[in-house]
Simulated assay, not measured.
Amino acid sequence: MTSAVVSRELRPEIETLWDYTQMHHQLRPVDVGIGLGGHDLGVAIRIADLYHRSTFPLIVFTGANAPTTVERFPRGEAVHFREKAIELGVPSEKILIEPNATNTGENIDFTRTLLQDKTSVRSVLLVSRPYQQRRSYAICRKRWPDVDVLCSSSTQPMDEYIREIGDADRVVNMLVGDTQRVWVYAAKGWAIEQDVPDHVHEAYARLVDAGFNKRLLPE
């Protein structure tokens, strides 16, 4: 049985990465809200909330399927996210879908192409899972350098988010993997380089040593 409670012994390290992987942007109105696909329907809920707050006039949901989302979202992540946003009162005509992307780079590239002939885009707000913010920001800055990029996600505290997902092990593995991608993607030229403080590297290393290595890439 999976646990929805983080390890008390490793809590400081988990909190360090949780804080680091979020951008803590102060939100302001932008041209387009972009909901990045994945297993977390909270992305669509957050997008709908921000739309109703007049943060953006147009939404794009982007995402096909990963092996972990096929069963939950059989018609594709973007399609299901759109349906959830409509259920929450967003007009259907205010939502575009990009149903082909299978990774964050494609999310950005395919959304950029989709919007190219539809509207002038000077600023975007990426809405993602909490721990995906920093990686998404860096990829967008690299692949779409002429737009102003902000990031957001569910505003739930870490423990509440993990309880809702229902699997602390999964969330921490994803958190560790996304942290590693900050420097791996930059080294590969897929994202801009970002500062990674020593205490973040140290927390990351302790969690890897503790066995949270299921989402790591070769370095």
Score class of each variant (00 low, 15 high):
residue 159 D to T: 07
residue 152 S to L: 02
residue 131 Y to T: 06
residue 136 S to P: 07
residue 155 T to E: 11
residue 134 R to I: 00
residue 145 P to C: 11
residue 130 P to N: 12
residue 140 C to M: 01
residue 134 R to V: 00
residue 167 D to M: 09
residue 161 Y to C: 06
residue 133 Q to T: 05
residue 158 M to C: 12
residue 142 K to E: 03
residue 135 R to W: 04
residue 157 P to D: 07
residue 127 V to I: 15
residue 144 W to M: 04
residue 128 S to V: 12
residue 146 D to V: 14
residue 169 D to L: 08
residue 148 D to G: 10
residue 158 M to E: 12
residue 145 P to T: 10
residue 147 V to S: 08
residue 163 R to S: 15
residue 160 E to L: 14
residue 147 V to I: 12
residue 153 S to M: 04
residue 169 D to T: 14
residue 129 R to M: 14
residue 131 Y to I: 10
residue 154 S to V: 04
residue 127 V to E: 10
residue 129 R to S: 15
residue 129 R to I: 14
residue 138 A to I: 05
residue 140 C to E: 00
residue 159 D to L: 10
residue 163 R to K: 15
residue 133 Q to L: 03
residue 137 Y to D: 07
residue 161 Y to P: 05
residue 147 V to L: 10
residue 130 P to K: 07
residue 127 V to N: 12
residue 136 S to D: 07
residue 169 D to R: 13
residue 162 I to K: 01
residue 168 A to P: 07
residue 155 T to P: 06
residue 146 D to I: 11
residue 143 R to D: 02
residue 158 M to F: 08
residue 161 Y to T: 08
residue 163 R to Q: 14
residue 165 I to S: 05
residue 128 S to Q: 15
residue 150 L to D: 00
residue 140 C to L: 00
residue 166 G to F: 06
residue 137 Y to T: 01
residue 153 S to L: 03
residue 145 P to W: 06
residue 163 R to D: 13
residue 132 Q to I: 11
residue 139 I to A: 06
residue 147 V to P: 06
residue 160 E to V: 15
residue 129 R to G: 15
residue 132 Q to K: 14
